[in-house]
Simulated scan of single mutants.
Amino acid sequence: MLRKSPHSVDAAQRRAHLQAFSELLQLLRREAGHPSARDFYRSNGGRAHFLCTYEQYLNVESGRSAPTPGLLEKIAVALQIWLHEGKNRELFLVYLRLVLGSENLFEMVAQAIREAKNAAAAPPLRQALQRDLETRRRPVTQEQADAMYADPVSYWLSVVFCNDGGEWTAAELAQLLGYPESAIRTSAQRYLKTGFLVASKDGKRFRCFASGKVLVIPRRTPHLPPEPVRRCERLNEEMARKRGCEELRESLYLKCYPSGIRQYYSYLARTVAGASVYSTADRGPDTAFYQVQTIVRKLFSIKKEAWK
């Protein structure tokens, strides 16, 4: 009886792992709102983001080659992999299996990071929120995202249209936000060119291109750039002082290991996302726009040499 060479077995396993990675990547890409590999590549900045040609990326998605760790990081950021609960872990495990090659080594490493087999299932509310997010997610192009941060008026229009599925006139938006109607129209025209807004036949009313969807902004890193974040925070604080108020602030100071507190981040993120269950399409007189936010700051570190 002929026995297969170990090398042929390894090659067959590698092909199977490449195929598994390819199929999962394509599934995640479609769930992220990109119907094709080319759309995913171009919408996320092309070579400037992925640091490879489209053909090289296509080889990975088609299962012809494995991504380098650097390319996998770029793919994960473009997918915003942290939004794909469950499948994010599966993707990295498939990649780990592909990179390690040895099945025995993979099992030892996977066992060390695998969730406890008897861990309680996710609560029903959390499962419902995740399913809702997966069906409503819609990607925003880089051009549309750039328009959002072009100026304060454009920023506030994005807040309104990302959270209200109805139509608005320039006069209504001016009254709501406290900006001149001419500035509203200028920003609206910029959005129309990018496809972010759609105008009515008479050109007087505007609505978002993806009403009722959860819009996902492209990212180059897991964290948003600090300067746009600070600029938005200043605008949020200014708007709350002028036309709203701060309704809740909770704060806690503690000393801990960074590796420990970071295990808490995913829970905090899900808690913030959970507030979306109160989102409404109604435009009643007692409805309002809210910002729900969580911030964790490292204030300073203790270094032993400072105590010598």
Rank of each mutant, 00 (worst) to 15 (best):
P139A: 11
A145L: 10
I184A: 15
D202E: 07
R47W: 12
V60R: 09
E181I: 02
C256E: 04
G86T: 00
G212M: 04
F209Y: 12
C162D: 15
S279W: 15
W168Y: 11
T53A: 07
S8D: 14
G195L: 04
A16K: 11
G274S: 05
E23V: 08
D10V: 10
C208M: 13
Q19C: 09
L268Q: 08
E115D: 10
E73S: 13
V60Y: 05
K74H: 13
T287Q: 11
T141G: 02
G165K: 10
D286Q: 14
S8T: 14
K193Q: 08
R241C: 06
L24F: 09
Y290M: 01
Q130V: 08
S8V: 13
L252Q: 07
G284K: 15
A145Y: 14
Y257W: 01
W156H: 12
Y265T: 01
Y95Q: 10
F161V: 00
Q80L: 07
R190P: 00
V160D: 09
L177N: 12
L2Y: 14
P180L: 00
D286A: 15
P225H: 03
C52V: 09
E167S: 09
L215V: 10
P180S: 02
S102A: 05
R249D: 02
G101H: 05
G274D: 02
H49G: 14
Q144E: 13
A11D: 03
A112K: 11
R262I: 04
V214T: 03
T287F: 06
R262N: 12
G244D: 03
V77P: 08
R185P: 03
R89I: 08
E61A: 02
W82V: 01
Y265P: 00
P124H: 11
L129I: 09
A121V: 02
